[in-house]
Each structure stands twice: as C-alpha cells, then as structure tokens.
Nucleic acid binder design. Structure first.
Length: 422
RNA sequence: GGAGGGAUGGCAGAGUGGUCGAAUGCGGCGGUCUUGAAAACCGUUGAGGCGCAAGUCUCCGGGGGUUCGAAUCCCUCUCCCUCCGCCA
C-alpha cells in the first residue's frame, strides 16, 4: 500500500497513476483522504481524553502511596464518565482506521515515470529482442513432440488430479531437474543466496506481498488450516523479512528459490491452455531483492539483464517488453516481461516478469531498515522469475527439435543431462 | 494427539497491581585517555501515531476482559521448550 502521507501530498499524482493503470474508482483517493482527516481529528480527541485519565490514575497512585485514601476515593469517583467516553471513542477510532485502511488497500502503486502510458498489452513497448525467431512450417508444437516421445502425460495428470497438472516422464523429468539446477547455480554465482521456502503461507504473508486482497482468487486454499498454496516463491521469500528492521549494512539482500507454483487460473479456461502454455502447477526459480530505495531503479535493470542472460545461455530467441501502465499490475512501479519464442506455435511465451515494487510491499509487510541518518525507512523490494520452467521446456522442445524427431540439448544443460540430444 | 513450562528492548535477563517504556549485563553509538588500538571510565542507545511546536498517546507474543490504574490479574488464540505417544 501507499503511504497515506504520500497520498496527502501527491493527490493528483496518485490519481493520475490510478487512471493510467485503468482503475475506474479514482474518487477513492478523495475518500481515503477524507477518512484520514476524520481519523486524525478523532485521534486528537481520544488522546486528550486518555491523557486526562492517565493523569488522574497517576494522582490516585500518589495519594494511595501517601495513605490519603479519602482524597483518592474522591478522584476515583470522577473518573467514571471519562472512562465510558474513552471506550466509545476508541471504538469509533478503530472503525475509522479500518475504513481508511480498507480504502488504502484499494489504491495501486504509482507507475514510474519511465513507464509508457497505455491500456492494454498492445501498448507495451518492445524493449529488446535477441536471437532470430525461427519461422518455418515443419516445426511441431511441443505437445506433439512430447506425445511422440511419451515425455509428458497430460491425461494421467487429469485423472490423478485434474487438468493442468501433468506428469513429466523420463528425460522430460530430467530436463526439468536440469533447468532448476542450472537456474539456481547461475543465480548463486551472481550473488543470490539460495533458499528453500515453505509451499504454503498464512494469510498475513499473502497480504504482505499483495495477493490479498487484490488477487485472492489466483490461489489454492487450505481452509482448514488457513493456508494458501503459493502462486510463486515471491510470497514466502519476500515475507521472509516481514516485520523486521534491517540494518543498513545488510542491504542489499538477494535470494533465489526454486518452488512449485500453484495457480487456479480461474476464468482463463479454454484460452491458450494447450500443452505447457498454462498450468495449474508449474516449477519456477524465483529471484527476490531487498534494496536501498536509492538503488531499486538500477536493481530492476540488473535483474532484467540477469534473466535475459539465462535465455541467451540457453540460446533461446526472446524479446523483452516494458509493460505499459495498463498492463503492469497493482503493486508494481515498473515491470518487464521476457517472452521466449515458440517456433512450433509461432508465438511469444512469457517466461519471466521482473518488477520493482518500491516501498509498496514493504509497507504492507512493515519491512524497514535504518538509513544513513539512523531513521527507519521502508526498504524497496523487487522480484523476477529466473525462470519459469514450462514455457522454457516448450521452447526448448520446439526450437531445438530436429527433423529426425530428436531434440538437441542446449550446451549449458548438457552437463546436467549427460547427453547432447534426447 | 496427551501432560507440563514459557513468550519482556539487538541479545541475555529482572520486574507479579500504582511516577514501569521498563532494572542490570552484553552488544551498538559518541566521548575521555592513547602515536594508534585494546582495556578502563563517562555519556548515550526500542518502535510507532497525532501535532507547526510545546507536548501527548499507543506498543512488554496476538485478541478480548477486570480495574481509577495492567508487563504484572482473568479469558482466548498463536508460537516456542520439555516429557509421553505416533511418524517420513
């Protein structure tokens, strides 16, 4: 969420940001400021009453200590009304605060200046392209290759769990394991600390990174225990430092984590769901950064470059999009998507998304650090996929398929696969 | 799953109804001394809200209650530890 004082001082900017992100409910900014106004005046009232009560209680203590019972009793009698009044106003106060915060939660992060304004994916800017997308007729889509080789079993996945939960078999299981190892090794080499995270999180964590309340429906739930199956490692890893005050020297902190990811993908049935394009469970290596506010812009660029380097090492043609305001999401200030070329489908597939959240997540999580002046300040958080597996697998199968039906293995994966083709 | 014990500032650890946001020690920061450092000594050192400020309020795991007054008493939840049972 945004800082209420920031909104107070930048009302127009926040509104413009909302507009650019395609939010209809711009008046919410005025509403939240109105509520804040009410809340603040209520705080003053309550504090004044509490101060009065405190003073009396203190005086009573003194008198009791001196053995002046009667005088004390006299003051005790006076306190009754004040006490009732305070109780009532405290209730009002917390209600006002709830109302204010609920509005606050509905205000999205303000896009960075460098983000192009636009409504839909058509307005995203192609930031970079790399490699030469193959465009020939003979190349098969990955699901046909996988079916030929009996590498992926979608039907049995459906039987055992449901659509979007495939089995990977033999060399395909090994390919996935190789990719995970490759991605983790690369990240560790770049200074990311490898961490293994829980696959379920509680409600506070889901709120901390912004899945609640904005994207609640994306997650699978375990209601009996109040857990959510993680839709990305971002959630547990970013929440790792929730409610902490880090020291200046600890920053920046870089983590990488492999986890499965679960997404309900409600509402997207029937759309681009062929093969590995869209699954309910998939594997991903995630990168998370906690940085000094001064550095988050630059850190986003290095994060993007790092993710791009992985695709280059795999020799997969890709393009990088700078997402426009309307397509970037609620919590981000700026976001890049990396899309790999799928020659069998002749389309781009998103395999990474690198985002800067500024202090938006940190504020929800109360994740702070002591700055140069010794003051506590919100850290900035970023994350990026490095990378999501299924579409990488799809692209590898399609890009490196041979006319004999085999698939060549990218050189960087050969040590993990112990072979050059499968 | 059963029984018991616990949760206090960066850490350790006192505090069981009254001036306690909290002793003391360690750690951190500043200073004295020193060529420099160490030691010693002195001082300082939690987070947050409202307010131009003076100031004031809140926070001793979370929530609720008793009381003029709660870190301290009661209820409840969560987590941790010990023992028993079960178990990859």
């Amino acid at each position: 969420m945004l800082d209420i004082n920031f909104i107070r001082e930048n009302r127009a900017l926040v509104k413009k940001g909302m507009q650019n992100k395609g939010e209809k409910n711009i008046e919410i900014v005025d509403q939240v400021l109105q509520k804040d106004e009410e809340w603040r005046s209520m705080v003053t009232r309550v504090d004044r009453l509490r101060a009065e009560g405190n003073k009396k209680a203190k005086r009573i203590g003194e008198l009791m200590g001196q053995g002046k019972r009667e005088e004390a009793q006299k003051i005790i009698k006076e306190t009754g009304d004040n006490k009732i009044e305070v109780k009532k106003l405290e209730a009002d106060l917390s209600e006002l605060q709830d109302q204010r915060d609920q509005l606050l939660y509905q205000i999205p992060n303000v896009p960075d200046n460098s983000v192009p304004v636009g409504h839909s994916e058509e307005d995203n800017q192609v930031f970079k392209t790399w490699g030469e997308p193959a465009d020939t007729n003979w190349m098969l889509p990955h699901w046909e290759i996988a079916a030929d080789k009996n590498w992926i079993d979608f039907d049995r996945g459906s039987k055992v769990t449901g659509a979007g939960f495939p089995f990977y078999i033999g060399q395909m299981a090994r390919l996935q394991r190789s990719l995970i190892n490759f991605f983790l090794n690369e990240a560790v080499e770049k200074g990311f600390t490898e961490i293994q995270a829980p696959y379920f999180v509680n409600e506070d964590s889901a709120r901390g990174t912004g899945q609640i309340p904005d994207k609640e429906d994306m997650m699978y739930t375990i209601p009996r225990d109040g857990f959510f199956a993680i839709p990305t490692a971002e959630v547990p890893v970013t929440n790792f430092h929730r409610d902490e005050i880090l020291s200046l020297e600890e920053l920046p902190i870089f983590y990488t984590a492999y986890t499965p990811c679960w997404r309900r993908e409600a509402g997207s049935y029937g759309k681009d769901v062929r093969g590995l394009n869209r699954l309910h469970q998939f594997d991903k290596v995630e990168l998370v950064k906690f940085v000094h506010p001064d550095n988050s812009e630059a850190e986003l660029e290095t994060l993007r470059e790092y993710a791009e380097s992985l695709l280059e090492k795999l020799n997969l043609p890709y393009r990088t999009l700078l997402m426009c305001t309307g397509d970037m999401g609620f919590t981000q200030t700026k976001k890049y998507d990396l899309e790999v070329w799928s020659p069998g489908q002749r389309r781009w597939l998103e395999v990474s998304s690198c985002s800067n959240f500024g202090s938006f997540q940190a504020r929800r999580m109360q994740l702070r650090f002591k700055n140069e002046k010794g003051k506590t300040e919100m850290v900035h958080t970023l994350n990026g996929s490095g990378l999501a597996l299924p579409r990488i697998v799809a692209s590898i199968l399609e890009t490196f398929q041979t006319e004999s039906g085999d698939v060549r293995i990218p050189e960087v994966l050969q040590p993990f696969m112990s072979c050059e083709r499968i």
